[in-house]
């Protein structure tokens, strides 16, 4: 099972997951792109910068 690149949480992939799919970490919400399914590897998904600061 791959681990979140940000918070090390275990990320369960759906059985029918495909390369290129966007998934998010259940603990910290970071989005990843599935680079490969076997072995399961993740990349940071392209993220548009949200305007959130005060």
């Amino acid at each position: 099972m791959p681990k979140c690149l940000e918070c090390d949480a275990e990320i369960t992939l759906k059985a029918d997951v495909e390369a290129g799919e966007i998934i998010d970490c259940p603990d910290c919400g970071t989005e990843f792109e599935v680079r490969s399914v076997d072995p399961p590897t993740l990349d940071h998904a392209p993220q548009e910068e949200e305007d959130w600061g005060e």
Partner: peptide, 11 residues
């Protein structure tokens, strides 16, 4: 609850 998220208003 451990709350430290990278998106959303209540991070």
């Amino acid at each position: 609850r451990i709350v430290k998220e990278t998106r959303g208003v209540f991070r």
